[in-house]
Design a protein around this nucleic acid. Structure first.
Lengths: 140, 140, 140, 140
DNA sequence: TTTT
DNA sequence: TTTT
């Protein structure tokens, strides 16, 4: 079937890059996305939602290189469920209480800004570039 | 900021409609969405993710009226976090263990099929219709 | 930057597959998507929008094999502009008048039904499967 | 059925606000969205696509007030076809040639930046706020 | 007509 | 843990 999530938000901390046993890079970071709305009681609600994003391959490297705490990104991806329940995975926090998170596997990460970079130009230059095979040889 | 989720899936059970204290209808139902992919080890993975959807107002009524267990829908909406953590809300299951779910507040529900309905035509007739004010008086 | 279009609709005709000079398959088909809404004057408007979709690579083959006139699909992709204007490309119709179309390059095509297929199960079996490298060796 | 477009881009000019005969505000502006990719021939392609956006009601007013040439926005909406062809409407340019554009009716416009504003804070304060009726009285 |  |  299909599901897709699109997020605009800011990194809560610097990203972290790891490698799988066979050398593939994986970068992860948290993204906060805020909404402000007026609730039923007329009160202003300021809601923050946090996403735990993982990105693989070439984009993992550019995210690790160019994103920093506070960077604004657009992330397009898929929610990752616990494979046995189909719901968010429950984990134990250090204090023994149960936690869960919105885990997102990113297909695309776009850099909308970057804090701590000398030039935003450099950022965009480094943005993962799509290679579209056959683009110039459309047979129609 | 912004986030949006779009889901195509099937209802796990018939929807349930309730009313808020001031009479607004709210319908909720669970949607299962399946993905099939080949994992790193070459094995076929069949992943099911469950969403708990709530829909308000007029659409609540048409969803309650026309959707049934097995109906296929497209849902467009927003994930609802726990307001204190920004992550999925943790609840106690009856057996005492902790649970969490992907809670979605629907802005739009489209009926892609309906089980138990005589005609899909009837379904589509019932699909929530947008009223677009001023549509025919564009000043440009 | 970023733009994305998501469409649910039905094929107006059977798809057509071609090959680029270096042998890459490209399949194209038209998708009609209908909306029903109430205009400002209270009149019911039944709007049909047509998209001209192209899909490349493995998905081109499965689309060509399994989709038929009337098949329902979900398409996720990008609009293709005229490279010189950034707007829809203008072409000459056979009668000499000017035409334009909503050209979409698909990243994903999901089969939501298929006319002419004996079983929907067969369809879904053929749905393009994602290979997610490293999926099972998450280092976190 | 369903279709949806999501765009991130910059305004080419200041927005323009008009009113329908019965006083409803409508604001329109053009948004450019750029993509950079490597074509089949290995050459770098820098593609710009232009969208002509219209937004109605309260959001029309805040867009007119806070957006300026160069402002970055996220637009979520629907493509508007020519009602007789289902394709982009063809118009006559002043030089007599035919033109077409990607017309989008916005459901949501999010301000990702604004040029010419003294404070971005003021911007976001003015961002259209959703009123979610019954939000605090969920009956489940 | 924008932006990098 | 972010941002306004």
């Amino acid at each position: 079937m299909y599901h897709k999530i699109i997020i605009v938000g800011n990194l809560g901390r610097d990203p972290e890059m790891r490698f799988t046993p066979n050398g593939q890079p994986v970068t992860s970071f948290s993204v906060a996305s805020n909404r402000r709305y007026t609730g039923a009681d007329g009160q202003m609600v300021n809601e923050t939602i946090w996403f735990r994003v993982t990105v693989w391959g070439k984009q993992a490297e550019s995210c690790n290189q160019y994103l920093r705490q506070g960077s604004r990104v657009l992330v397009e991806g898929t929610l990752i469920p616990d494979t046995s329940t189909g719901s968010p995975r429950i984990f134990q926090r250090r204090d023994g209480t149960a936690g869960a998170s919105f885990e997102v596997r990113a297909q695309t990460v776009k850099f909308l800004s970057a804090r701590g970079e000398t030039a935003e130009g450099a950022m965009l230059e480094a943005e993962p570039q799509e290679t579209i095979e056959g683009e110039d040889e459309i047979p129609f």
